[in-house]
Design a protein around this nucleic acid. Structure first.
Lengths: 273, 273
DNA sequence: CGGCCTTTCTCACTCCGTGAGAGCGCCTCT
DNA sequence: AGAGGCGCTCTCACGGAGTGAGAAAGGCCG
């Protein structure tokens, strides 16, 4: 929902046309297809402009024009780009399988997170109707590292400068009443996490939900990722915590072994399978 | 690639900026990430322009800037758009399962195709290392209906005017030496396909590969999609043909039953014109 | 056949994107 | 460490590209 208030908003010196074009794409995506008029109304752009931009998108295969139904829908190039993105983030199949095993064994949603540039990003998730993922924690989630279990593991694996930089960009927004929002508190917590090798997060991100994570390390011993689980807090007893930690360490060991064994990154060709 | 000579190229009156922006996106996708300079060189756009456009893409989350590695890679919004596209094409789970069963039973790659606007598009594929898909036939493939088995089924399910329109847009390009390229020949063939209820395609699309398809019908008896398989021609004996037809009809029956039973989220009627 | 909606076209204006060039800052090589 | 190279950003004046009102063309409906 973009407000098209031209006067008030301090327009970044971006390329206005690009922004308009992309917002059209997103409107069509949100609504599952839209007519030009709907877009025009929703975004406040004049009709001819909308048509021109949409035609540009159609001719590049980012949209298709369903003439019969007088609607625009998303085009096929978006699938290819999505696939490319997944290939760039590149979670190897053995790792996927390991997260699947974690999900099965722990009977919780299972996650795998990696660094990407200065960010911490969810790269793979396995869940099921009985054990669903935390709603915002899908592929590509890269916010609020201070309030998630895998985020803490990954922050603990960064240099102090990197942590500073991360927090400068993202801040420490309060997600729930338990979220840590003071830097001192977080630093102390991260020291503990680094010491124990496991991070717990009790309702600091979503009320009623608990997460835990363990780091994945490469041959040099550096944290390169994290395996994590999430579960309703009510299901987490002392015994259950021990059990989950065991599953996490187990998964982490297997994944770490994979990353140590060579095939770390960019194996050139996305090997079959 | 010279950018200097504007007069020679018959520029469509598209929005040039949009085109440039999207081509940047695609370069980054192809190469699995790129620096601004690489993009500038590859596309022949001046560096500042590339930076400006890339920053616009970054600020909309279509790209990310990995400052550490001085590279741009694809952003997370592309995943969401890809997911939206899949939702718009919307192959219901029971249908997916049926194609999976087709793959298992027939021991071939399995396909499901639907109408989308005036197009015929591959909506779902199940394959495996032993039985891989035909290389260009991935999700979103929508060309050369005259040379594919599912394309023939879907053309046979369209009105003559719809077929005319389709062929006007796409033509009948020769794919192999067996491709039908005359309209009369195709019409005759389609009549046979409509009569038999199954379409075969012997090396008309890719040399050495054979495909077959059977239509999926809704409650009104209209073709709304097609189930298909592909296999190396050398594996196709007379007996095997019979067997594959049986599997296809079986899959088609199950899928058709699903579409008759109500739950058709979209009335995938062949809407054209 | 006549209304209504979608889509395309035209055209003059002006605003927006453009791109050379300079300058800054980080990484690397010696 | 210093020097050099490279990646990245900013500025600014020019010019053409995008813009958007308006109207006309094309379809579908009753």
């Amino acid at each position: 929902m973009r407000t098209s208030d031209v006067s008030a908003i301090p327009r970044e010196p971006g390329v206005a046309t690009v922004e308009k074009t992309l917002s059209i794409l997103e409107i069509v995506a949100e609504r599952g297809g839209a007519t030009a008029k709907e877009v025009s109304l929703a975004l406040g752009y004049p009709l001819p402009t909308v048509y021109r931009l949409m035609q540009a998108l159609v001719s590049s295969d980012y949209l298709v024009h369903l003439k019969g139904q007088r609607r625009f829908e998303l085009g096929y190039k978006l699938d290819r780009l999505g696939v490319s993105l997944h290939r760039q983030i590149g979670v190897p199949n053995p790792v996927r399988a390991e997260i699947g095993r974690l999900h099965d064994a722990a009977q919780t949603a299972g996650y795998f997170a990696v660094y990407r540039g200065a960010d911490v990003v969810v790269a793979y998730v396995v869940d099921s109707p009985e054990h669903p993922r935390l709603t915002p924690l899908g592929f590509g989630f890269h916010e609020a590292a201070h309030a998630t279990a895998f985020g803490k593991i990954m922050l603990a694996g960064m240099t102090p400068e990197q942590v500073n930089q991360y927090l400068e960009v993202h801040g420490m927004p309060r997600m729930t009443e338990r979220t840590m929002t003071s830097r001192a508190q977080l630093d102390e917590h991260l020291a503990g996490v680094g010491h124990l090798g496991v991070a717990w997060e009790h309702e600091e991100f979503v009320p009623g939900m608990t997460c835990a994570a363990v780091g994945v390390r490469n041959g040099a011993g550096m944290v390169v990722g994290a395996v994590a689980i999430s579960a309703p807090s009510e299901q987490i007893s002392r015994v259950r915590e021990r059990e989950l930690e065991r599953y996490l360490r187990d998964a982490s060991n297997h994944v770490s072994r994979y990353y140590r064994s060579g095939q770390t990154r960019k194996p050139g060709a996305p090997a079959a399978a």
